[in-house]
């Protein structure tokens, strides 16, 4: 599942044999494009329109204005929130990929005939509801939670530790757990694809295990690492459930402030501007990351 998902997008599309009658091809493509136009393009266009309107007065009246963007960029609080979201996601991405790599390496090279068993075992925890998985961390880190009650019962502490929950740390821990599968699978796929004779060749030519890993395995698995990093970074910056459940006021992220504009505050134009700004920031960062990774891969060759 994850395997084909990754290769589907990262491998690009190799167009098979050309066929006469391209009209039939466009006809096949059109229902999907129509649905995506209705559910993606039109809503985003409308979101953009809203972001150009004023907060007061009827929406879509009174001419376009950049006031909302000025508000987004100008207010210290929003800038800080953007930075914190990106910061948290960057740490989560780093931690998730670093923790997943050895695991994926083990499955790809050392799990032997039990490879499939390991892959199933690694994905089963992700079949529980995402909400409940996040909630489980609240049980673990909370005031009367698993860690605190365990530490109190063995007498290490006398009062519950309060720094475990409701801060950026708890958000990082929870997200690192919640998105692990999205890092393990792409890295595993890229390691699995490595031609084993290259490794034998490196050994025959006198490379030790570490040199061989650094010169062959790691560079060849970089597509998987980059894919994993994107698959974790992009959705975690926009995550709503985790910061809301375990983040507290100091762990709030972009999605919280966006949804508040539509829920409680009722300031749709500002919410629209915040949403588009966050989308743009994440999109640009993701593209920069891919470009940097590609350049690094070329330089290493």
């Amino acid at each position: 599942m994850g395997k084909s998902l990754i290769s589907g997008f990262s491998g690009g599309v190799q167009v098979a044999k050309a066929e006469d009658g391209n009209d039939a091809g466009y006809l096949l493509l059109s229902p999907t494009l129509a649905v995506m136009a209705l559910t993606l393009a039109a809503p985003l266009a409308l979101l953009f329109l809203y972001s150009l309107t004023r907060t007061t007065g009827p929406v879509l009246e009174g001419g376009a204005t950049l006031a909302q963007y000025a508000e987004v960029l100008g207010r210290e609080g929003y800038r800080a929130l953007f930075w914190r979201s990106l910061d948290i996601s960057a740490v989560v991405t780093l931690a998730t990929v670093a923790l997943a790599y050895p695991m994926a390496y083990f499955v790809a090279f050392h799990a032997g005939r039990r490879k499939f068993l390991w892959l199933i075992a690694l994905t089963i925890p992700f079949w529980t509801s995402y909400l409940l998985r996040v909630f489980a961390w609240k049980i673990i880190l909370g005031y009367g939670g698993v860690i605190n009650s365990a530490l109190i019962s063995i007498g290490l502490i006398s009062a519950p530790l309060e720094f475990l929950l409701y801060n950026p740390f708890s958000v990082v821990v929870t997200l690192t757990h919640a998105w692990a599968a999205f890092a393990i699978l792409p890295i595993y796929v890229s390691l699995e694809k490595i031609d084993r004779s290259l490794l034998e060749a490196a050994t025959d030519l006198g490379d030790g295990p570490l040199r061989r890993f650094l010169r062959i395995t790691l560079p060849l698995s970089m597509p998987g690492v980059i894919g994993a990093a994107l698959l974790v970074f992009v959705p975690t910056t926009g995550d709503y459930v985790t910061p809301t459940l375990v983040g507290g006021p100091q762990g709030a992220m972009i999605a919280n402030i966006i949804s508040v504009q539509f829920d409680r505050v009722g300031n749709w134009p500002l919410g629209a501007a915040l949403a588009l700004a966050s989308m743009a920031v994440v999109g640009v960062l993701a593209m920069l990351f891919v470009a940097a990774a590609r350049a690094a891969a070329k330089a290493a060759r």
Partner: peptide, 27 residues
């Protein structure tokens, strides 16, 4: 359509359809 026909704009169409992967769910 994209694997068995040589269509102009296939890359753009795929990029467009794949866009939701890069947009936060909240948006």
């Amino acid at each position: 359509a994209v694997t068995q026909y040589r269509l102009k704009g296939t890359g753009t169409a795929l990029g467009f359809i794949g866009l939701p992967l890069f947009i936060p769910d909240v948006v």
